[in-house]
Design a protein around this nucleic acid. Sequence first.
DNA 1: TCAGATGTTCTGCTTCACAGACCATCGTGT
DNA 2: ACACGATGGTCTGTGAAGCAGAACATCTGA
Lengths: 159, 159
Amino acid sequence: MTSPPDVEQDLGWALGTVLRSYLRLANEAVAGVPGGPRGYQVLSSAASGERTSQLAMAQSLGVDRTVMTYLLDDLEKAGLVERKPDPADRRARRVLLTEAGTARLCAAERGLRKVEEHLLGPLDPDERHTLRTLLQRVALASGERHGTACDVAQELEGC
Amino acid sequence: MTSPPDVEQDLGWALGTVLRSYLRLANEAVAGVPGGPRGYQVLSSAASGERTSQLAMAQSLGVDRTVMTYLLDDLEKAGLVERKPDPADRRARRVLLTEAGTARLCAAERGLRKVEEHLLGPLDPDERHTLRTLLQRVALASGERHGTACDVAQELEGC
DNA sequence: TCAGATGTTCTGCTTCACAGACCATCGTGT
DNA sequence: ACACGATGGTCTGTGAAGCAGAACATCTGA
């Protein structure tokens, strides 16, 4: 007999479980931001100043471009962002935060920071930082190589 | 001015991004298991022998109990699991793996292991182990305290 | 100037999760 | 023994959510 590989060993299970808990809490923390946590991410992404085109934001956040449309519709309706025509490319729109949007973003950030700390409660400060850093590195790396999935597909053939 | 808190600093963003990449790869790795990665988790959970009741499995995997029903329907239709009446409680069913189910589970596990290693590619072996361990601890802890969300809700009041 | 690529939006469709009702069974109390 | 609420499982309806595909405007390169 081989060892009994429990579900809890599975990276996917751990990721899913943590994300579920996070979302459950985050939904309350960002109450008032249309689109929930994703709406917050849009705000945050727009606030950074880079990647203000809708498509760029959609890709970095992992949402469909058609979804980004009505996500922004809601945020605009709530007066948190504005869509200004991009002077350099008249097809594109620059997504800019209004003052209300900036304020709402800050409030949401404060809330989310507490949620994160609560979620990482079982870890000591060093470990929290380590987890954040490692996750971030994996996220950044996996975001870059979108097309590189093929080499894994090849490996999988041999099973 | 405060520092510019980019989206990539957000724990939720990192979790979501990594999980998305994982699912994209895992979907191929578990091809042939009805229900995709979740179907695999059901198999894995049933294989452990504990938590074989549908409800217990549903909770530990974070899916609705009505979803578990048709998830198991599909797995049973594919001949990977059996629903046997629990002798101790005739309301409940024990979910048992068939031989085909066990084989499929092993194959899926091999595939997923490669996916995980590929995903954690940018980390060195020590870091991979650290990330796995820390994530697991957070996942286990956040799974246990389901009702303890209230204290965070209280904290959030003060924002 | 023309052809193809790109950014955005809109329409239609399919999938999917959740709420709620329903049935069978258990456990407890009387 | 019986009645009651709680629990495990299933089914039905409904609403949301995302994606494919087309449409339109605009950019870019030949």
